[in-house]
Structure formats: C-alpha cells, structure tokens
Design a protein around this nucleic acid. Structure first.
Length: 276
DNA sequence: ACAATATCCTGCGAGC
DNA sequence: TGCTCGCAGGATATTG
C-alpha cells in the first residue's frame, strides 16, 4: 500500500524517466469512475495538449502541475501505480485503467483494486481543495517537530496508532510505517494518544522522520504488489522490524512478534518492548 | 464535535 | 479439485 515513501519513489522515478515537458496527445480510460470531481470528458479536456511541468507531493497525494495554470491530483489508495513507458510496450490489459499519451510514450495508471482517485484543479486552488487542505505536515517537512506532533495528537482520546494514521494529525503515514514507528519508539499501539509523555512524542517525531527518510532512500516497501517502476521492487521490506513479522523473534529482545487488530487494522508489535 | 463503523473493489488464501 | 467465504486497507460517508 503506497504511503509517503512509495509515493515519493514513484514521483522520483517518473521524473527520472523524463515524463516532464512533453505534450499530452491523447487520454483514454477503462474506468470513468476514478474521476471524482469531474467526468472523464472534462478530465480529458483539462489535460489535452498540455504538458506536465512538475510533479509534487502532499501527504500521499501526487500533484501533477500542467501548463496553463492547471493541476491534476492522484491518490493511489491501496494498489495504484504509475508507469511512464513506450506506447508499444506490453501492459496489463485488465488492470491498466488510465492512459495519458505523449506522442510515442504514455503515462499508464495501474490499479488492481480500482480504489485510486483522480481530481482536477487550477494551480491557484488545489491547496484549498477539500482533500489537500486538511492534510497535516508530514515527517519530512522542515517545520515538523515533536511539539507540532504533540499538539495534534494530544487532542485525541483515540489510541495512538489510529491517531498516527489520521492524515489531519500527521500526513504520509500508513499501516506499515505506523507499526514500525511505534516499535522504534517502544510504544504500544493501543496506548491512548493524549496520555503519552513528552518523551514519547519526541520519540515518535524523531523515529517517524528517520524511518520515512530511510524508506524513501530504499524506494519504499514491497510486501506484495508495490513497484516504484515496472518490475522494480522497493528495498525497505528488508529493514522491517515488526510489520509482517508475526511469529518471528523481536530484533531487540527476541520475544515473539504478535499481530493484533487496532480499529480494524492489522497491527504488529513486540509485546515485551511495547508495553502498555 | 467527536469517534466508531460501513463502504468502495478485487485478488488471494483458508477451509471444506 | 473447485467452490465459497472472509480478509486486506486509505479515505470518505454514514451512523452512533
């Protein structure tokens, strides 16, 4: 599931593959329902003959900046992936849902679960859109620190893992990295957020930045289907300490890693290192 | 106002 | 073997 490091790795790859500044010559889809604030014809009209001038990120959203002050925003949700390829290269016919053609090349959107979203805005108003406006800072932003985190999380009587997944408290963290951050901070995922000490907020702030940074350097985590580029897996799964490690020994204390449910989400932890 | 739950969707693995 | 069933999960809508 793409979280901040996976989204960033995909953006980095698209730019590296030279998808910027090429005229869009055609757009096709087999899934018009992906387009959320417009119908497909409007989306097509919005992009046609423009160029992508830059790709930026807000939380887990990809922002494609176009010529003529236009923008489109993509969220990959569970399984979305973007590949920039030659038009005549082979592709998965069943799960490739959107084609943004640029001459003999094409930006393809692949999504087996069809959960992703596409929206269109102008450059001037996308930051005020309802999905991006409410995003908190992410752990890689300069202004992010433990006081900011404490201020956002300590308002909540929910359990800390649920609060960490709430993009209005801190952006970019999903189920994998929430487990890893809480393990590194030695905090039980079901501890009530507003009962954490200053030291615990400091630890979460520090570890979230460290872990996401290292995950970006390793091009994300491939557990099952994530690729930052065609057939290219991330490497951060090799550094996971608890997530997916049920039954394995804790790298710290050798106790057995367990899996529990926290608000419906599969959650991995070391019961000895992460005490209530 | 907040928090828990249902919803979207498909592939996959468990179990009979 | 082949079927059904339930699970996985990010964000949003709905319900409590």
């Amino acid at each position: 599931m793409p979280e901040l490091p996976e989204v960033q790795s995909m953006i980095d790859n698209l730019i590296e593959e030279n998808c910027l500044n090429k005229q869009i010559t055609n757009i096709e889809t087999i899934m018009p329902k992906l387009f959320k604030n417009c119908d497909f014809d409007q989306f097509k009209k919005h992009l046609m003959n423009e160029k992508i001038t830059n790709i930026t990120r807000n939380g887990k959203y990809l922002v494609f900046h176009l010529t003529h002050n236009k923008v489109f925003v993509v969220h990959l949700r569970m399984e979305g992936k973007l590949f920039f390829e030659k038009n005549d290269s082979p592709y998965d016919k069943k799960h490739t849902l959107v084609f943004i053609e640029m001459g003999d090349e094409v930006l393809r959107y692949h999504d087996t679960r069809r959960f992703g979203t596409f929206t269109i805005y102008s450059e001037d108003d996308y930051l005020d859109s309802k999905e991006i406006k409410k995003l908190a800072l992410d752990p890689l932003q300069e202004e992010y620190d433990w006081k900011y985190l404490k201020n956002n999380l300590s308002k909540s009587s929910r359990v800390i893992k649920t609060s960490l997944l709430d993009q209005t408290n801190v952006a970019g963290i999903g189920n994998i990295y929430a487990d890893e951050i809480l393990f590194a901070s030695k905090i039980h995922p079901t501890k009530i957020a507003n009962e954490l000490s200053d030291k615990e907020f400091k630890d979460i702030a520090k570890n979230s930045t460290l872990i996401l940074k290292k995950a970006v350097e390793n091009k994300g985590t491939t557990i099952s289907t994530y690729f930052y580029k065609k057939e290219k897996k991330g490497e951060f799964q090799n550094f996971l300490k608890v997530h997916t490690k049920k039954g394995f020994p804790c790298p710290g204390c050798k106790a057995e890693i367990i899996k529990i449910k926290v608000n419906g989400r599969g959650t991995y932890l070391c019961p000895r290192c992460q005490k209530m």
